[in-house]
Design a protein around this nucleic acid. Structure first.
Lengths: 156, 156
DNA sequence: TTAAATACTTAGTAAATCAGTCAGGAATAG
DNA sequence: CTATTCCTGACTGATTTACTAAGTATTTAA
């Protein structure tokens, strides 16, 4: 479990997609412009998100990315785990090769802590932050500002 | 809110101190040896922990570091905030300089999320992970293994 | 069928951060 | 005085970040 701006970028981008799920696939170019993230960097992140089964790419004009699962089944922990390499729990991750050492004691305490943290973030799914009052109006207003989805029909 | 190995080092070291609070000040040399962290790196981390009022340094022979507050009043969030620079919330941290922009929408969602996370980690204090059955026996056993505190009387 | 739009991939890079070394100064117990 | 410890600052190689560049593959629309 590691939390950096990289993870923030990924979560933010995923939220953007989830917000526009109904309109259709979301292009990285749009996310890049609206969220202020470099396009190529997004491509790298989405390569990982795709390999981890969180998003689904649609090629060709009118394409983009959509969620591979319902927003209610994608947790923040999923996204961060996909994008940020987990940090090494100092070699002795329960393998017992430092039995009884003082290392393993406090390392275990840290391990317990990160387990709690991971459980917490696993309980937070994308939809929890999207299904809020007034969000939809805001999204619509702001899409107009950026001129998103002006020539696209609403998808099923 | 940012979480890296740096934060892990700090939390682990703080746990080590909390575990030996009753014996007296804990030297960085001991922590370095037992937790496998470089001494000079620890010194840098503790410089920040001290400036943030989490630990108190005691100079001279028999010195070391002790907690500046009861373990029940030091949260994991405190430690991580002290050691890891908070990551920039992309310039528009509520300053209103990107009013109504699509940026601020998803940024706000991210902001809400990190607030929840911070609240979660603020609720986890050092003592919660220390006051557990069998921990004290383990600590004693492992201190003997590393030869810690062999010539030191128990502090008040 | 062609052109454009998009996902996808690989390679490279400047800057930042990490984790550490080194060298020394300041306080204090014995 | 001397050994021990905190404390500070400067420096460094390795890694990671965040990004650029340049392409390939696939699909839609004209």
């Amino acid at each position: 479990m590691k939390l950096s701006t990289k993870g923030r970028y990924a979560v933010t981008a995923m939220m953007d997609i989830a917000l526009h799920e109904k309109v259709g696939p979301v292009t990285l170019a749009d996310i890049s412009q609206c969220q202020g993230i470099s396009l190529s960097y997004l491509e790298q992140l989405f390569s990982k998100l795709r390999r981890n089964g969180l998003v689904q790419g649609v090629r060709g004009p009118g394409g983009g990315y959509r969620l591979a699962k319902p927003a209610s089944e994608i947790s923040v922990a999923d996204i961060i785990d996909a994008v940020d390499e987990k940090m090494d729990l100092t070699k002795c991750g329960g393998k017992g090769n430092c039995d009884g050492g003082s290392k393993c004691l406090t390392h275990k305490l840290w391990y317990d802590l990160t387990c709690d943290l991971h459980r917490f973030l696993s309980g937070i799914t994308l939809d929890q932050y999207l299904n809020r009052p007034h969000i939809n109006e805001l999204v619509k207003k702001q899409d107009e500002q950026y001129g998103r989805f002006i020539n696209r029909r609403t998808a099923a």
